[in-house]
């Protein structure tokens, strides 16, 4: 028998970490979704010339910084010292993912907004101040999209790396997490685009989403295997996720409802066996959001590694 008694008071770390509420998972989801929207839309812009005139691509490019702003607002709400928010930009700390993220966002916003502006040039040309800007950058549209693919991927990966560098929290401390969150962000973004796309384009987005969901399922499998077969700390943390209090949600909402069911539906839809339904992308989005919530909460609820 081991009896451990402590008179430590701090409720934020005892009996386990309880620092992040709904704000951080919402931020991580929005960040991933925004990154995904930018990556997918930019990718399409690079590969397909006609994409410049696609309603879906243009709307996605516009939504990307907006969605990110929703996430950033959630993150701001989480800050305990809100009046010091500007302090993120008085330092660059190479060892801190959060610092990288802060500065990457500084690149993300202007470039993502610029891309959106270029795609809505017809509507915006009348705005005098933008005319010169649009004229100046129009020739670099493809290069911009090329850069944005990388910026978006960076933000997508960052939402996972942010958690993965916390060695003290064994569930998070898993290098696959960055890939999982990037793929999850991209699959969510594609699902959103599938939802927005006109009927004739849905098959394309559905195919891309099937591909991304498959990769995501594969990455999560690797994440689970890595945890289960890892050190005792990682093992216990992963077992807590896949068999503990969060397990029913993880298995049903995130994996079954968020990946496997929409993957099957998309397969059927693409094959033309059933009609495209908004339920499919909605499931993917809910699954992506739930994955952030579950991983953030389960990672905190697991006692500090020993």
């Amino acid at each position: 028998m081991i009896e451990t008694v402590t008179n430590k008071l701090n409720p934020q770390v005892l009996p386990h970490l309880q620092v992040w509420g709904w704000e951080v998972p919402v931020y991580l989801f929005c960040g991933g979704l925004a990154a995904g929207l930018l990556v997918i839309s930019s990718g399409i812009l690079i590969t397909r010339n006609e994409a410049n005139f696609s309603y879906t691509v243009r709307l996605s490019a516009l939504l990307s910084p907006i969605v990110l702003s929703v996430g950033m607002f959630a993150l701001f709400l989480d800050l305990a010292y809100k009046t010091h928010v500007w302090r993120f930009y008085t330092a660059f700390v190479p060892t801190s993912p959060m610092s990288w993220g802060s500065w990457l966002l500084m690149l993300f916003y202007p470039l993502a907004i610029l891309q959106a502006v270029l795609l809505y040039e017809k509507q915006l040309e009348s705005v005098g101040a933008l005319k010169g800007l649009i004229g100046f950058f129009r020739p670099w549209k493809k290069l911009l999209a090329f850069v944005n693919v990388h910026i978006g991927s960076g933000i997508g990966v960052y939402t996972g790396i942010l958690l993965a560098t916390f060695y003290a929290r064994p569930l998070w401390s898993n290098s696959v997490l960055g890939l999982v969150f990037l793929l999850s962000g991209m699959s969510s973004a594609t699902a959103l685009m599938l939802w927005m796309a006109p009927e004739e384009k849905k098959r394309f987005y559905s195919l891309v989403d099937m591909y991304l969901l498959s990769l995501e399922a594969f990455a999560i499998t690797v994440l689970i295997i890595g945890g289960v077969t890892g050190s005792e700390n990682s093992h216990l943390a992963m077992m807590n996720l896949i068999t503990g209090n969060f397990a029913p949600w993880f298995w049903t909402v995130s994996l079954l409802g968020g990946i496997l069911v929409p993957l099957s539906l998309e397969t059927l839809e693409t094959m033309g066996k059933v009609r495209f339904s908004p339920i499919t992308p909605a499931l993917v989005l809910v699954g992506g959001l739930s994955l952030r919530f579950i991983l953030v909460f389960a990672g905190q609820a697991n006692p500090t590694f020993f």
């Binding site: 701090n10 934020q12 770390v13 620092v19 989480d78 010292y81 959060m98 003290a168 929290r169 998070w172």
Partner: peptide, 19 residues
């Protein structure tokens, strides 16, 4: 300099911090 982002709390293996 502190923003209250709590990254340090998540990072500390000894749970020594609080907000």
């Amino acid at each position: 300099l502190c923003t209250g982002c709590k990254a340090c709390m998540a990072a500390c293996p000894y749970d020594a911090r609080y907000i």
